[in-house]
């Protein structure tokens, strides 16, 4: 039955572990922590312009290529120029903002329902994004129907389009949006290109995820 402890050994283990933990926590020596701390972290209010500026600043540090476009048309042109001639792995057209889906029609495009192998051929991932978090230069992406996770993950380049109005200050503010409905979608916070410093601390980009992250901010 779905959602139950799978085997009888695991069921026994559950009871044993919970009993042990219960016993242990009675006599556990848990140190006191500092008193007088706030219940939760406060986010002082900011202006949209300040958030955008901070986001761009963080992008620069992270090596994210960023474009700020003044009109919807400019966003479409920008995205076109970025993806033309490449094989694309895209969110469904109706899930992309600014009519970008229409704008890239005619290119070689794979979608989430295509085979993994086909998706693996794509050179560029094209997605929208729920929110951007200014203070860390982070993109908060949820996935769902027509918004596959693979598009922001498998191709070596990831092009993201966001609306300026969707720039929040930080993760706390983003999470506040889920306070009423604890039902979380699959979520990933992306901050800069994929990186590793495992080999003698030398920074290498794109070891598993995209090595190039390009963000287009629209009105």
């Amino acid at each position: 039955m779905s959602g139950e402890a799978s085997s009888s050994t695991s069921r026994d283990a559950r009871l044993t572990i919970l009993a042990r933990v219960r016993q242990a926590q009675i006599r556990a020596h848990i140190p006191e922590t500092k008193a007088g701390l706030p219940e939760r972290l406060a986010y002082p209010p900011t202006t949209p312009a300040a958030r955008r500026a901070r986001l761009l600043e963080e992008f620069k540090i992270l090596g994210v290529e960023a474009y700020v476009e003044e009109s919807e048309e400019a966003v479409r042109l920008r995205v076109r120029s970025l993806v033309t001639g490449k094989t694309i792995l895209s969110w469904d057209a109706d899930r992309l903002p600014y009519g970008i889906g229409e704008a890239v029609r005619g290119e070689k495009i794979y979608y989430g329902h295509d085979s993994k192998e086909d998706q693996g051929q794509a050179e560029i991932g094209l997605t929208g994004c729920q929110n951007a978090l200014a203070e860390t230069g982070t993109l908060a992406m949820t996935s769902g129907q027509g918004r596959p996770r693979s598009a922001s993950l498998m191709p070596i380049t990831h092009v993201v389009v966001i609306r300026e109005a969707d720039i929040l200050q930080g993760m706390g503010e983003f999470f506040d949006g889920f306070r009423k409905s604890p039902e979380l979608p699959y979520l990933v916070f992306i901050t800069g290109p994929s990186r590793t410093a495992d080999i003698e601390l030398s920074l290498t980009l794109g070891v598993h995820g995209p090595g190039y992250l390009i963000v287009v901010i629209g009105p």
Binding site: G144, G146, F189, T191
Partner: peptide, 15 residues
């Protein structure tokens, strides 16, 4: 770089 929050397996409609 990546912080994933995984809340259950793939949902209906997800690819």
């Amino acid at each position: 770089t990546y912080t994933s929050l995984i809340t259950g397996p793939r949902r209906a409609g997800e690819a």
